[in-house]
Structures are given as structure tokens and as C-alpha cells.
Design a binder for these strands. Structure first.
Length: 452
RNA sequence: GGCGACGUAGCCAAGCGGUCUAAGGCGGGGGUCUGCAAAACCCCUAUUCGGCGGUUCGAAUCCGCCCGUCGCCUCCA
């Protein structure tokens, strides 16, 4: 299979010799509720993982929480909540929302604040090797010492300095040197270190966690496009300088941004739709379908109409796997061509739009087969299987309200009314049940109903 | 200013040198089935791929210019 590698800018063959794939995905900074851009990122890498597992790889998936940084402190101070409590609360919500979206749990969710030992160990070694220098309680990474700095984002130091938007800190040797350790300011949480009380800089926590949980050379490192620079660039610089192993990650995967209106969805701009809000309006599977309706590297525009359309599309797939009447003719619907197309599309850098097209084609064939009386059971199983690879379930959720027997009674009464050609009353029952969320369909085999 | 993307039907979105008079979904129109619906099926809904040139036997796909949009350049998934 092929995966696009940000590092080379090319789509390259991917294989893992020992059948094992180490995948590190940059998680969230839990300073406020997560938005659907985060959800999209999580769903995308969830599908990457599920597909790799479908291909037979043994995937180890690590996703971190950066639970200490400027924004965490700012948010905690402005609400009067302890930084740790704020993180805990947002992490709990995030995980619950990801569960709702059927995102498989990562094998570990390390947190920056729990890895201070590994972080200081790396910083100390970087200083020892000449890649970093302490200044009055802070420690900076010496970018000039790193020969290939800028290789991921394809930038050179001169261009970066010229375009710098922030004031240069005079204590740094080079304007592009970045903080590995920040000394404590009044009122800030801090940990002990050889350079005094302080906290880790933004990028070092990911290097520490990736190396600790996956080793010094990993297979796939993922995250949003906006992390390419500076975050991932700096992670590479730190990690490779520390371990002397190149590459730190063989593949770098970056997903396109989810846009709301004209801009990238961003907590600081304030154009946010939270995951909770999205889940209250749309089904998890429709949201997944929406995220996967465009290629993961392309930007996607979030609009009500777009997601609502996916709700209908999802129905289409679900209808195709509903019980079919027994096969009456000898033919059988063969799902293998559709499955082959699905695999071919996914093998090509996770081309989910094309994979979905194969699934919709299969759904049509199944429906056609149902009409003709062909055996569609095997094809339906295949459609369920392919949906499962995308983390989408097509089977109805069990009715849990306890209203089942009563609905069934109304449906039975309506059937008697129809037999007596009392259509006005029968239609009235159907309309009222529909208002209550019960869908009724009259088929040659009898009346079917479902809630939702 | 630098780096990187993108512009395909009413909307979303594949395709990236011939099989493209361009996949799939949503929406819309017509039909079949049905007591009527719903679901499903069938047909139609881009002779054309932002614009203008060029390369080529052949371009939505490659090159150049122009127009427009977006991301990043130490808040960011």
C-alpha cells in the first residue's frame, strides 16, 4: 500500500517488515471543549489504524495529551480552576466523545505532566551534546547545531527569521531557537529540574512520549497540517539530535483542516462547533461518513447541509443490509469486485471517497439483487465488513425504550385497518408514528417498522 | 515577503497523460412498484474540468502566465 509522506512530499510504498506498526498521533491540548476539527483528526487516524489492522498489521497506537502549556495555564487562571483539574475534566469529555464516535481507544494516552522525568532526561542529554543551552532557568534548542533543520516543512532558517512574527528574545543565540524548558513564573505549576523549577516547552513532550512508548524510530507520526511547523519540525530536531537515529519517524501523515465558514476552525478565532454540539445534531456514523467523504489530506468545509446529506447517505447503506426475503432465483450477488475496489482505493493513501464509492456501488447491487430475488446475504456481510473498516456500523441499534410492544400493537391494528380498506385511519396512524420517530414501511412481506 | 496546497455539475467529492462524451453521495426532474406513502429499482440532471496560451498523435490530468481561495511562517488537530 502507499502512504503520502510529508517528509518527502511524495506518496511512498509502505511496509512494515515485522508486521508491526508504531503509530504516534498528536492529540489535543485539553484546555477547553474539543471541536469537530479535533474529532475529524481522531476519526481519520482511527481509520488509518483500522485499515492497517484490516491489512493484518499489529498496530500500536499512542496518542498524547499536552496537559501543560501557556493556554492551559491561561484557561485555568481565568476560570479559577486548577490546571490539573481542567485537564482531567476536558480529557474525560474528549474520551467520552471519541467513544461516541466509535474511535478505537489508543493503547496509551500519555500526558506531558506525567513524563517530566523523560523530558528532563532528554533535555539534559541535548545540552550535553551541544544541541541545547540553558539561560537563566530556561533551556533552548540550538537550531544552528541541527544540520537539516527545516526538512519537514521545507524551510530554511533565513526565510523563517525574515518572516518571524514575534519579537526576538535577546537571550537566544538564534531567533529560531525554541524553548525546551521554561522557568516558572509566579502562580504557574512547576516541576523540579536541573535548571530550576519550571515546565516543559511545547514540543519536547511529544518527543519524550513517542520515544518512551514507541522507541527511537517510529513508523507513522500523525497530526493536523497545522502542526507541520513548528511542532513536528521541532520534534524531529529534538528527537534525532537526542537519539542520533534518522528518521525519527519513517512516515509523517498530516490531515487537512476542517473549515467552518471561511476559516480554519480554531479555538482562538472562536468559530467553533464542539464535538458535543455536532453529536446532538447528527449521528456519529453520519459524522464519520462526512469526515471520510473527502480525502484526508484535503481541507473540508463543515456545513449543516453537508453533514445532513451524509445522514441520508448513511440510511442508504443501512437499507441495503436490512433483511432480505429468501432467495428465489439461483443467482448470487458477488461482492468481491466491490471489495477489491475498496481495498485498491484504501491502499492508495487511504482514499476513502473512492472506497465509499465502491460501497455505494455494492449497496446498489444488493438492492437490485433483492428486487430480483437473488441471494444477497454474503454481499451484505461484505458491506458490513467494509463499513466496519471505516468504523461505521450499519446494523440497527437495539430498541431500548421499551415501547416496542406498543408500537407493534399499533402496527398490527393498522394492518387490520388496511385489510378493511380503512386507509384514512391507517394513514393517520402512520403519520403520527412518524412524528414520534417511528418509520413504517409496507412491503410485500408485511409491514416493517423501526425507531429512529 | 517565504513555504505548501487548491479551483471538477445546484452542493459535497473522486479522477491526475489515452478505457473521461468525467466515479460516488446529497439535492432536483421523470418513470416502475404501492390503496397512498416509504424504501428500492430504472432514466435524466458537467460534450466538460477557474481563464488564456503551450507541450503532445492525444490533457481535467504536464508546462507557463493570469484570476480566485486556503493553510503555515513559534496559539493551533
Amino acid at each position: 500500500m502507499k502512504i503520502h509522506n510529508t517528509l518527502s512530499g511524495k506518496t511512498e510504498d509502505f511496509e512494515a517488515l515485522d508486521g508491526k506498526v508504531n503509530m504516534y498521533v498528536c492529540g489535543i491540548t485539553p484546555y477547553s471543549a474539543s471541536h469537530i476539527g479535533h474529532a475529524m483528526m481522531s476519526v481519520i487516524f482511527d481509520v488509518v489504524r483500522r485499515y492497517l489492522e484490516f491489512k493484518g498489521y499489529d498496530v500500536r497506537h499512542i496518542q498524547n495529551f499536552t496537559d501543560i502549556d501557556d493556554k492551559m495555564i491561561l484557561a485555568a487562571n481565568s476560570t479559577g480552576i486548577d490546571v490539573a483539574d481542567l485537564a482531567e475534566s476536558n480529557i474525560t469529555d474528549y474520551l467520552a466523545e471519541m467513544d461516541a464516535l466509535n474511535v478505537a481507544r489508543a493503547h496509551e494516552y500519555p500526558r506531558a505532566t506525567a513524563e517530566i522525568g523523560k523530558i528532563t532526561e532528554i533535555i539534559a542529554k541535548l545540552i550535553e551534546k551541544g544541541y541545547a543551552y540553558p539561560v537563566a532557568g530556561d533551556v533552548y534548542f540550538r537550531v544552528n547545531q541541527d544540520e537539516d533543520y527545516g526538512k519537514l516543512s521545507n524551510r530554511d532558517l533565513d526565510g523563517l527569521i525574515a518572516g518571524a512574527r514575534v519579537e526576538v528574545d535577546e537571550r537566544k543565540e538564534n531567533a529560531m531557537d525554541f524553548a525546551l524548558w521554561k522557568s516558572q513564573k509566579p502562580g504557574e505549576p512547576a516541576w523540579d529540574s536541573p535548571w530550576g523549577m519550571g515546565r516543559p516547552g511545547w514540543h519536547i513532550e511529544c518527543s519524550a512520549m513517542a520515544i518512551k512508548y514507541l522507541g527511537s524510530s517510529i513508523d507513522i507520526h500523525g497530526g493536523g497540517r497545522d502542526l507541520i511547523f513548528p511542532h513536528h519540525e521541532n520534534e524531529i530536531a529534538q528527537s534525532e539530535s537526542f537519539t542520533d537515529e534518522v528518521p525519527f519517524s519513517r512516515f509523517w501523515m498530516h490531515n487537512g483542516m476542517l473549515r467552518l465558514g471561511e476559516d480554519k476552525m480554531s479555538k482562538s478565532i472562536g468559530n467553533i462547533v464542539t464535538v458535543g454540539e455536532a453529536l446532538s445534531s447528527y449521528s456519529p456514523d453520519a459524522l464519520r461518513l462526512f469526515f471520510l467523504s473527502s480525502h484526508y489530506r484535503a481541507p473540508l468545509l463543515y456545513t449543516e447541509a453537508n453533514v445532513a446529506g451524509q445522514e441520508r447517505a448513511l440510511e442508504r447503506l443501512k437499507n441495503a443490509v436490512r433483511l432480505a426475503s429468501a432467495a428465489s432465483v439461483g443467482s448470487t450477488i458477488d461482492a468481491s469486485p466491490a471489495k477489491a475496489q475498496f481495498v485498491e482505493a484504501m491502499d492508495d493513501d487511504f482514499n476513502t471517497p473512492r472506497a465509499l464509492a465502491a460501497m455505494f456501488d455494492l449497496a446498489r447491487e444488493i438492492n437490485r439483487g433483492k428486487d430480483e430475488g437473488a441471494d444477497v446475504l454474503g454481499a451484505q456481510d461484505t458491506l458490513r465488513e467494509l463499513s466496519g473498516v471505516l468504523g461505521i456500523s450499519l446494523d440497527e441499534t437495539a430498541e431500548t425504550s421499551g415501547a416496542g410492544p406498543f408500537v407493534q400493537m399499533l402496527v398490527n391494528v393498522r394492518t387490520e385497518l388496511r385489510a378493511a380498506r380503512q386507509f384514512d385511519i391507517a394513514d393517520s396512524i402512520r403519520d403520527r408514528l412518524s412524528e414520534l420517530g417511528v418509520t413504517i414501511e409496507d412491503t410485500p412481506e408485511g409491514t416493517e417498522w423501526r425507531i429512529g
